[in-house]
């Protein structure tokens, strides 16, 4: 593994509870309302997960494995394009850390082991701020931002 990797660390403060944030990430019927996608898994360590677009085709866009799960405070999973599922080098790692912060929740999303300059690195650097803003809006106001093209 000599490839050069890059990381992103995103922090968002949300007026909500750790449980609600955790469920918003892991429960498909919630994730689709602000992400336009669902994260589908049985959420056991070692199980697979799929990132499924909430459209008629139900396209599986990302796949990976649940590495660590400790509701409602931590979730670690690997992450790759579904088209590169067989290439072990294509997998990056996403960590959700959810902490209480006074009357709010501090959500830290770390995306590590991304191949520097790759399409995935560019994509997630645009995607996460939008998804996290929409998540915040969803949990605080009941509706996400209209940021994900659902067509």
């Amino acid at each position: 593994m000599s490839r050069e990797t890059t990381s992103f660390v995103y922090v968002n403060y949300i007026r909500s509870t750790r449980e609600k944030v955790f469920e918003a990430i892991t429960r498909p019927e919630l994730a689709r309302r602000y992400w336009g996608h669902e994260n589908v898994s049985d959420w056991q360590v070692g199980s697979g997960w799929q990132h499924v677009r909430d459209n008629d085709e139900r396209t599986v866009e990302l796949v990976g494995e649940v590495v660590e799960i400790a509701p409602p405070s931590r979730l670690v999973m690997t992450w790759a394009n579904a088209s590169q599922a067989d290439n072990s080098d294509a997998y990056s790692r996403v960590t959700f850390d959810i902490e209480d912060y006074n009357d709010m929740v501090k959500l830290t999303v770390s995306h590590d082991e991304l191949e520097a300059g790759s399409g995935m690195a560019k994509g997630v650097s645009k995607g996460w701020p939008a998804v996290l803003s929409s998540l915040k809006s969803f949990l605080e106001t009941g509706s996400g931002l209209d940021i994900i093209n659902k067509s």
């Binding site: 990381s7 992103f8 660390v9 995103y10 922090v11 968002n12 996460w128 701020p129 996290l132 915040k136």
Partner: peptide, 15 residues
């Protein structure tokens, strides 16, 4: 101690 740009608030400003 590593510093990372966090564009989440900027996205809120953008929206």
């Amino acid at each position: 101690k590593l510093h990372f740009i966090n564009p989440v608030p900027l996205h809120g400003v953008y929206v």
